[in-house]
Design a protein around this nucleic acid. Structure first.
Length: 561
RNA sequence: UGGGGCGUAGCCAAGCGGUAAGGCAGCGGGUUUUGAUCCCGUCAUGCGCAGGUUCGAAUCCUGCCGCCCCAGCCA
């Protein structure tokens, strides 16, 4: 394979990479530096993955580096727990920041000096107005704001007040420092934005050292400058902040001039990706936690069994643009299947067991039959699977009155047991209520391994597991968390919760080799889907989560009729 | 009624004045010891709408229309 051509073919194209290439080509920047700047106040979700893959990906592609920077300017809502989970998730996604781990709080002292610099140049002032008053004076979207009565304080008075603010001499919320820009600007962010507020909260990293904390706007661009970030990539809602970002860069003695570029955030059908709504799902108990396999969080996807490579592939396929979008969940699922098809070893598992007795098969321990581990990967080899007179098959693989095109088992019908024998159904046993409790079958010893020497064909091949050898486990089948493409579009997202998003199967019968499977490792249950062992598993009872079902054209045919 | 952003197929998305890439979904067919995978075919006389410039326009100009974001001492 021609490696050079391959990398050409897969070269990613988007407006941000265009800018990076141009800046590198013109010599505007000598190397590219990006950053992923999460606020440690929640768990990462797949929307963050888009940003992570973009930022770390660009650094990788252009031989630069990507910083991991915790944007920890608000001690009121940030916690160490989140810092830990974020690091774990970024690593799991396949990225490493090396020595480039930073915190905005590392720059608090510099930021303070720069605020003083602004005051000294008459470009910032302390405002004593209550929050409510400041809000009123800000004006509206269509009407200009009004100048605060504090706007023309002397430099000295501002300095004294700001110093006292730092010393913790004022009550929380009693005063703020504002940049003096333009109360009549059409851009509300320029109407004398608050850049420091009083917060008597203990910070996870700086403890009780500070009583004032910079706002996002006053911290972000300057942090980028301090770190010599060249391309500061963020989502569209920050586009309005860019003039402010640049105003600080223009008015402060910063060591570099980073540039901000905005792209649209990721949206996915049948789920929600806003921090607020994710928190609500967790806090109100609609899911078991941040890592519930139905959650679009990185930890949820991990527990669900999504390979990190599939997530990277997904966000790359989605692309980077400035248009609003809602990506169909089907694309994410496709990426998972494509990866798992290549990598997941195959096993047999009967989710809804129905006992089958093979009347002409000898009693006793049975035999072992060879099964292929992965038809897509010869190097995965084969394994031996025990077979005996009593087995379990899937209830859904038998119908007493099969409709047209049903290729599986029915009275008098013959099917192939995968890697085993052809069997024919010769009897159906039911209980008083009429429910089928057992099937009686005969097998053809000549079809051992699954091939008929006489060339006889069967339409169906079904999976099975030896009753005496099977281990019993719990299987969790997941569906979309929401029934609606856009949850909450019609009001409350809770109205759109899918009542069937989790189905528990307590009595699944698993091929014995499954007792050895490791949590997180993918496995395909033949004819059903991709699964992974859940950490809830116990020694006696393994638990498997369904990552994604196999495509099912039979279900599609049934739906049509 | 202010400022910013965006409109190419059901969902994404290339395209940068020379006659609409690709992926997902869908549909049709072939192979198959997974109704899986894989393979083949099909899917925009059309690029929000209306004018204009040009030999030629999704690309340039003008005017409309629609959608998203902004009035936290959140990020």
């Amino acid at each position: 394979m021609d490696v050079v051509n391959e990398s050409e073919d897969t070269r990613l194209q988007d407006f941000i990479r265009d800018v990076v290439r141009a800046d590198l080509a013109s010599g505007k920047v000598k190397g590219v530096v990006t950053r992923f700047p999460p606020e440690p106040n929640g768990y990462l979700h797949i929307g963050h993955a888009k940003s992570i893959v973009l930022n770390f990906g660009i650094a990788e592609e252009f031989g630069g580096r990507c910083h991991l920077r915790f944007d920890d300017t608000n001690p009121a809502k940030e916690e160490q727990e989140y810092i830990n989970s974020i690091k774990e998730d970024v690593r799991w996604l396949g990225y490493e920041w090396g020595a480039d781990l930073y915190h905005t709080s590392d720059y608090f002292e510099t930021l303070f000096e720069w605020a003083v610099h602004l005051i000294n140049h008459g470009k910032a002032y302390v405002d004593d107005s209550p929050a409510e008053e400041i809000r009123k004076m800000r004006g509206t979207l269509t009407q200009p704001g009004k100048n605060s009565p504090c706007r023309d304080r002397s430099v000295q008075e501002n300095l004294d007040l700001f110093t006292a603010m730092r010393a913790g001499e004022f009550a929380e919320g009693s005063r703020v420092l504002r940049a003096k820009i333009d109360m009549a600007s059409g851009n509300i962010n320029l109407r004398d934005p608050v850049i420091y507020r009083i917060l008597h909260a203990s910070h996870p990293r700086t403890g009780d050292k500070w009583h004032i904390y910079p706002t996002y706007d006053f911290a972000h661009g300057q942090s980028d400058a301090i770190e010599h970030v060249t391309h500061s990539l963020c989502t569209l809602e920050f586009a309005d902040h860019r003039p402010l970002y640049e105003w600080f860069i223009d008015n402060l003695p910063v060591p570099a001039r980073p540039r901000q570029y905005e792209f649209s955030r990721l949206n996915i059908s049948h789920t929600v990706l806003s921090k607020r709504r994710l928190i609500q799902l967790v806090n109100e108990g609609h899911v078991s936690g941040w890592d519930d396999p139905r959650m679009p969080t990185i930890s949820g996807l991990r527990r669900r069994g999504y390979p990190p490579a599939a997530i990277r592939d997904f966000v790359r396929r989605v692309g980077i643009t400035k248009s609003d979008n809602v990506i169909e969940m089907a694309l994410l699922e496709h990426c998972a299947r494509e990866n798992l098809n290549r990598n997941a070893p195959r096993r047999m598992a009967v989710l809804n067991p129905l006992k089958v007795v093979i009347e002409n098969y000898p009693e006793g321990p049975g035999e072992e039959l060879e099964a292929v581990n992965n038809p897509q990967d010869e190097s995965a080899g084969t394994r031996m699977v025990p077979f005996s007179r009593e087995i379990y098959i899937e209830r859904g693989d038998f119908m007493e009155e099969p409709p047209r095109k049903f290729f599986r088992l029915g009275p008098g019908r013959e099917v192939r047991l995968r890697y085993a024998y052809f069997i024919t159904c010769v009897g159906v046993i039911k209980d008083e209520s009429g429910e089928v409790t057992e099937l009686r079958c005969t097998y053809d010893p000549a079809t051992r391994g699954g091939d008929a020497p006489d060339g006889r064909k069967v339409r169906g091949t079904i999976h099975w597991v030896s009753a005496a050898h099977a281990i019993t486990g719990q299987v969790r089948l997941y569906e979309h968390l929401f029934t609606d493409v856009e949850p909450g579009a019609g009001g409350d997202m809770l109205d759109d919760l899918n009542p069937d998003s989790l189905k528990l199967l307590e009595n699944a019968r698993l091929e014995p080799s499954l007792s050895k499977s490791k949590s997180g490792a993918p496995v395909q249950f033949e004819r059903q889907g991709y699964f992974t062992r859940d950490p809830d598993s116990s020694a006696e009872k393994p638990v498997f989560n369904r990552t994604v079902a196999l495509r099912d054209s039979w279900a599609k045919i049934q739906k049509k009729n």
